[in-house]
Structures are given as C-alpha cells and as structure tokens.
Design a protein around this nucleic acid. Sequence first.
DNA 1: CTCGTCATAATTGTCAGACAATCTGACAAG
DNA 2: CTTGTCAGATTGTCTGACAATTATGACGAG
Lengths: 252, 252
Amino acid sequence: MYEKNGARVTSGPDNLRSVPQNGPMSETVGSFGTLHLEHSSTVDRVAQELRRAVFDGELESGTPLREVALAASLGVSRPTVREALTILVAEGLATREPNRGVHVATPEVDSVRDVCAARWVLEGAGVLRWAEADESQRGRVRSTLEAYTSAVRRGASYQELNERHLAFHVSLVGLTGSPRLVAMADNLVVELKLALAQVERIRRNAHDEADNHTALLLLLEDGDTAAAHAFLRQHLIDAEDDIIDALGLSPN
Amino acid sequence: MYEKNGARVTSGPDNLRSVPQNGPMSETVGSFGTLHLEHSSTVDRVAQELRRAVFDGELESGTPLREVALAASLGVSRPTVREALTILVAEGLATREPNRGVHVATPEVDSVRDVCAARWVLEGAGVLRWAEADESQRGRVRSTLEAYTSAVRRGASYQELNERHLAFHVSLVGLTGSPRLVAMADNLVVELKLALAQVERIRRNAHDEADNHTALLLLLEDGDTAAAHAFLRQHLIDAEDDIIDALGLSPN
DNA sequence: CTCGTCATAATTGTCAGACAATCTGACAAG
DNA sequence: CTTGTCAGATTGTCTGACAATTATGACGAG
C-alpha cells in the first residue's frame, strides 16, 4: 500500500548513500573488501536529497520548503519530511520560523564573516599543531591536497573543485586530532557551500587556488608553522572578501 | 481534547535558547524596551524537561528513553517525543541506534578528552583576543565571573555553581566576537555537564575555583594575554584530569 | 546441562488522516 | 488611514495503525 510512489526520490547520478534497504542483501559470496551497510533511513535520504538540491542551486535562497508539497513530491509522509527539515535547520541550511515554516537559509554578510572568523580559529589551531600532529593526520592533509590539485588539472566540475578545496581546509582542522573540532569545521563548510551555491550562477569560475595551498603545505613541511599560520590567515581573509564581494553583486 | 495534560512539562526557570527571530518586527511606535514572548513549542518544552532530568541525575547514563513511555509520562504524543529526542541526540546528550532506540549518552574518557581539547582551542582563541575584543564582551566576562564568585560566597547549590562556572568559560569564547564559536562552546558545555552529572553523586564538592578564575581575569586586565593563555591551559588540563579521575572512580 | 533455533513480544520507523492554532492577505467598517 | 473580521493556507500536534527490526523466552538437540 505504500506504493503510490510515483514520485522518484532518487536524485542525480551522484546520489551517495542510496540503497533503499531492501531486506536481507544476498551478497553471501567471498572477497569482502571494505563493506559498508548503508543503514540509511528514509529521513536521511530525504535530507540528503534536499541538501543536494540546495547545493546544486535548484532551490534558491529563501525558497519556502512546504511540508505537504515536499511530502507529495518525494512520495513520503509529512512527518518524515518534517524530521528531514529539522535536520536541515540544525545544519544551518535552512531556517525555521514558528508557524511560518522553513525556508532555505539566506547567507547574510554577517554570517559569512562569522563563518570565516570561526574557521580561522579552527584551521589556525590545526596549522599550529602540525609538528605534534599524528603522522596519519599529516598524511590526510597531503592526500586531500593531492586530490584537489589533480582535480584542478583534470578540469573537474565546479562542484567537485569546491568539494575538494573545502576538504583540504577541513583536513587542516584534523591536525588538532579532535573529532569534535572537525565536526564543527564540517558544519561551517556546509554553510560556506550554501553561500557559494548562491554565488554559483554569478561567477562559476572557482579560481584555481591549488598553488596557494601547495605553498601553505610547503611552509608546513619546512617546519615554519608561524609563516604557515600567517599565510593561512591571509588566504582566509582573501577568500572571505571574495565571497562577500560576489554575494554583494547578487543582492537578490 | 488535548487537555488530559496532567503531567507538567514546564521546566526550570533558566529556559535559555528561546525566542527565535520573531518575524517582521513592527517598531513603528516608541519606548518598547526589551520585551520577550516565550514562543516555546511543546517539543521544546519536552526537550528542556529531558535535559533537566539528565543534568539533575534523574536519568542515569545509559538509560533507555522509550518513546511510548515518555509520551505517556509527559502527556504528549509519540511524534512530539520523537522530535524532542532527535534534538537531544543532536546535542550529544543521547545516542540513537537504528531500530534500537535512544539512550542517555555515556561519557567515555576519550570523548571527555576531546571535549577538553576542543574547548581549549575555543577558549584559548578568546583569551588571545582580549585586547581587540569588544568592550561589551569584556564586560560579559567580568559579570559572569562576578556572578560565579557571588554564588560561591552565597554557598549556592552544586548545580548553580556548575552553571555559572561554565558560563564564565563560555564568556571567554565570546571574546572572539563570533556567535558560531560561542554556539560551539555551548555544545561542548552541554557534554561537559552530562559528564559532570554522572560524577555528581560520587563527589559533589565542585571545588571552589573562583580564585583561579579571578587570577585569570587579573592577568587579562593587566594586558598579559600570554600569561593568561598559559594559565588557562593549565587550568583546563587540571579540570580534564579531575573529571577523568572522577569518572574512573565510577566505572558504571 | 549447555547450546542453537524458533515463535512471540516489544520497540522503532513510517504512514495516513485529522484538528487546532497561527499567519497571510483581502475586504469591509469606522 | 486605521481597525476588525473572515477565508485560505500552513504548521504544530494528536490519534491510530502497520511493517520491519530487535529482544526475549521456550523448546528441542547434542
């Protein structure tokens, strides 16, 4: 009876975390590599789909997210949509006003400044701990940078470049060795991605900053953490100005 | 019909985090000072009541939070309880295992260490910014310390002392001027309070650290931020050891 | 007597439908 | 021009239900 599901929930080609849990997966055969059981609930999938839509610019900033409309469109019930929306709100991707519903969050200039100030604290703390950090964490910084530069060379999509660029910054926070700080950085990145999604249609250049980051890593490898710290600060300030400029050009 | 509500849900007097941005504010007339309307929803009240129960030690760590039982006990419906529980989980006060329900979180030694490491980053950043901070932020530090010391003198309850003590630490983060960093610090404090609640029945001494904090503030007022920074670091390390010691004494 | 297997109960995840409260906007009344 | 009222829309919350998963306990085999 739950099969009036004409509305497709599956999203674009890059729909990670899918696999609607269809019972007892029959992969009984050998050669278990890294196995993952996507224990995704319906709520998670709805939330992921909404995130994707926001980041891909399908949902403009300020768009109201009506519960009934979404429920009908996604083929799920209203409580499910409601739970997914509270997740989005908690992540800062949407705002809820009592009795007025939830809308896609509008990145204000102040909030962008705040996000950048906060990430300066987090990433700066990571950079300062380069020397004492776990070797595996340093390795993660190197590999995420490598992934970014290779994506740049390969001429990857705007969205992949953004993703990898921001992943590098988060990996800097990982140098602190604190999962909680990394989680905070992830949340900040989500907000940044929201802001960038608003700018995307204005200027989708996503200018190549691979050299900048490589220079930063070189300073770290040389053991000059102070210089790396200062370098990062300037880099973040520039990024903040860039985003705010672009945001100012698209008033609404 | 919705009035079989015999169970009281209203919580303590210190109901912070209320009043979301209330819409289009019609400031057409004069002389409205600071007026606040407690726009609390049922879900918020349930969540607050659960928080209180956890912090007061009524709900031991690991206790399962059954949806139906809570719904019956609080006189609300199961979906309402469910939403409140997701809030608790998001705050780190509880953990949810799919199809197994949510339990009051158990503070592990590792997580306590992580929380302390993270708050060192946040509070340290605030201390370093004492000089450039807003005067109002410095004022907040002074007043929260004053509130703490006066509570100590007055011989306030264990819980109030904890509350004011932690509020002082959060006010240090406020020196950064970043609402997001403060929000992160708040989340960390919530987890600390959970850990402390587990220890509470073992040792409810809550030793008087007012002098320590006063010394820290004096260093700041003297402009010796480096010394204050180092002082804070030692203070946080001591606190971490204290908590972990106490936690180790109460294995389960 | 211990161990594995199976039926049954408990609990969550999700759905459907409903009603009250609140907000929005328009329109009438003063 | 301000205020009161009303219909429509939307959210907040409730009730009831069912499927899927997990825990529990009995039962039989070794």
